[in-house]
Each structure stands twice: as structure tokens, then as C-alpha cells.
Amino acid sequence: MKKAVRPLKSLYFIWVLLLSGCASVYHLADEQVQTYRITEKTVDVADHSPIEEMIAPYRRQLTEEMDQVIGFVASDLEKGNPESSLGNFVTDAVLAEAQKITDLNYDFSICNIGGIRISSIAAGPINKGKIYELMPFDNYLVTMKVPGEVIGKLFDSMAQVGGWPISHGVTFQIKDQRAQNIMINGQPFDPQQTYSFVLSDYLAEGGGDLTFLKDYPYQNLGVYYRDALIEYVTLKNKNSEKIEAEIEGRVINLDL
């Protein structure tokens, strides 16, 4: 048996040698790595470079749009936990917009704190670009109607992460990372009742760790959450009103 195998093996060996020996081969001889940091200092660009010329019309259109002053902010708006002036502005604005669009009343609105992408808006004129920075994602404004027990879970979820922005008319306290003494528009929260509220499709689809919301349908208002904010500010300005939001004791964290 052994004798029968040996010649085959050596044949195979020669065959491999022939193959590799005769083929025109490029051997990987060396790899060097470097990284360029792209700054004004390392690369000097002339204004008339073809690339700049390609960008220019788009940038012009964008700047025109983004630099548009759409309203005025009365005093600095800041983002934070458990309640913040910026968060109050956002949730009050989308609640008002949802009510305007559907001509229906909702019990409240929420926003995940991670969905607000800037830390503050300074007092003074506010342009469209600032709202894009605040909310760059194309999330839709949606509404949901759910049983009280789901609302209980929702408030506990918000309490667990130290509080999320919630609209005017709701108050609660965070104790041991749970929500307590929840008041909704002057009434104590009732787990037996049904509530309707305003949020983004991102959250309605279970984002922001609200997986329990996925089991319930939502109504898409067909408007981006961001555009609702722009519309709200624009309308306020038309009525010669400034954006005003303050911390008013909506959410109090007793764990701190």
C-alpha cells in the first residue's frame, strides 16, 4: 500500500513546484501605512478648484435655506435631565403641531433626550439650520393611543434613564428609578384609562428601549418631527411671539 501511494505524492509535489515556478508571480513584498490629517494647513485649496465649483451651487442653495431666520428665542434654551428648557420647547412645540394638523387633542408628547442633538440654543434669532442641527434625522411625527398600563411602563422607562423631555401639563417624580405621583392635565394618572400621545416614529417602533410600544399601532402624521419644530417657530414668529421655555417642575428626580 505504502509503495503505491508514494509516487503519487511526489508527482503531486513536482506538479506544485512546476505550477508555482512557471507562473509569472507577483509577491507581496511590503506594505506601508500612513494617514493624512486634512486641515487648512496641510492642504491649501484655491477657491476656483473644480471641486469647489461643483459644490458652490448646492452650498448657495443650502446656505440660503439654512440661514433663514425663522424666529426668536427669548432666553437661552439648555438640554438636560430630568427636565430642561430645550426639552420643554421641543415637546410643547410638537404637541401643538400635532393638534393643529389633526385637529384632535392629545394628552401629552415626549421626545427621547438622545434625539436632541445639540446642547443649547442661544437667546436671539434662530435660523432653520439650528433646527436641523437639533434634529438631523428624518423621523416622522406620529401619534399613539394605548392602555394606561403601557403609559405606566413608558413613564417608568423615562424615569429609569433620569427623565426625558415631556410636554406641559404632565408632572411626576422619579423615585428609585420609577415614576410616581404622575399627574396628566390636572388628573392623577389612571392605569385603567386609555391615553393618546405624540412622539417620533423612531420611538413608536420601539427605539430608545421602548420595545413594548412596538405591539401598538401608530398614526403617521406625514410630517418630519424636525419640520414640525420649524413650522411651530415660524408660526410663533408670524404672531410676533418669541420662543419661551423654562423649567417648571414637570419632572423632579428625588433620587439625586
Binding site: 509569472s24 508571480v25 507577483y26 509577491h27 513584498a29 506594505e31 506601508q32
Partner: peptide, 10 residues
């Protein structure tokens, strides 16, 4: 940037 060099031989 990765610079790779190849040696050609038989």
C-alpha cells in the same frame, strides 16, 4: 494611505 509593493519573479 497604504503603499504596497510587489516583486515580480519566476
Amino acid at each position: 494611505r497604504v503603499d504596497v509593493s510587489f516583486e515580480k519573479n519566476r
